[in-house]
Design a protein around this nucleic acid. Structure first.
Lengths: 148, 148
DNA sequence: TAGCTGTTGCAACTCAGTCGCAACAAGCCT
DNA sequence: AGGCTTGTTGCGACTGAGTTGCAACAGCTA
């Protein structure tokens, strides 16, 4: 569940500014929430946390900003196997892609990094002559504590 | 896009009956639609096709039956990178898991089978001591025809 | 600091999926 | 075959995620 805290605060904001994206009070709040999150958040959780920094933030602004970040490839959108409801979860994209492992019994989310995952993506790009922008691998099943 | 037609018609029905699942006219229609599909269908497409076989089929019965098939591990649920809308797509689960590759420009869906995918899953099961029930790998980007 | 233009809040909307309930029908048991 | 039990269905109302049109607003550049 906990995400590595290897991020310089305000990094996301700086990157977006560099790209000529207009920076607003609301966007600053939302970006800061995403950067400092220590677990995967969904849109309504991001909204609630952002409103603590800037009470004027609206639901639609959260969705619009998430769309913007997705288009810039700065966040990944996850389903986490729809453990609770149909919504999506978001996380800052940094470093290597990783597998999200969801225990269908206790709901625990584990992240898993593997050279084999990178190799599979390289193979796919070559053999399918395809340029990958996003790769999402989610796995559902039972963790060691839950399997009988 | 086209799925391999390596299925004996009525196989899904037979499998479900064997497991003691009560077979109804509506379920027969829905299972038959899924078995004979030649592309990934979403819930509303399944509904429309099933109603051609049995006009009494209701939307909620489609969702309930899809839930049943999911719980029995007989279908896989896909997002196909949300190319159109937020809904899900379904496909008969047979043989090996495969990667779903979605071109963000032309919308083409390609399926890709790789020993590396199977190896990655085995590694994950061992190293994370996790029992995998479903694994979904979806990739978005640009196909050879669309990349400039 | 004036002004252009992108961004926001709001409210109304769409769309996928869910649920409670009374009517119904599979399939088992004589 | 016919009755009975119990799981399943259609219906309609509902939920919750995400989207949109628009007028007011606020970054940023000159």
């Amino acid at each position: 569940m906990p995400l590595p805290q290897t991020e310089i605060p305000g990094r996301l904001q700086a990157l977006m500014s560099e790209r000529g994206v207009r920076m607003t009070e609301q966007r600053r709040a939302i970006l800061s929430v995403i950067e400092t999150a220590n677990k995967h958040l969904d849109a309504s959780q991001i909204l609630r946390k952002a409103q603590k920094l800037d009470p004027s933030v609206d639901r639609s602004t959260v969705y619009r900003t998430l769309g913007l970040l997705k288009r810039h490839g700065m966040i990944d959108e996850l389903d986490l196997m729809h453990l609770k409801g149909e919504g999506h979860y978001y996380e800052r994209k940094l470093g290597r892609d990783h597998v999200h492992i969801a225990c269908l019994s206790c709901g625990k989310i584990t992240e898993f990094v593997s050279e084999r995952f990178d190799a599979l993506k390289r193979q796919l790009e070559q053999e399918c002559r395809f340029h990958i922008l996003v790769a999402r691998l989610e796995v559902g099943g039972y963790c060691s504590a839950c399997r009988r």
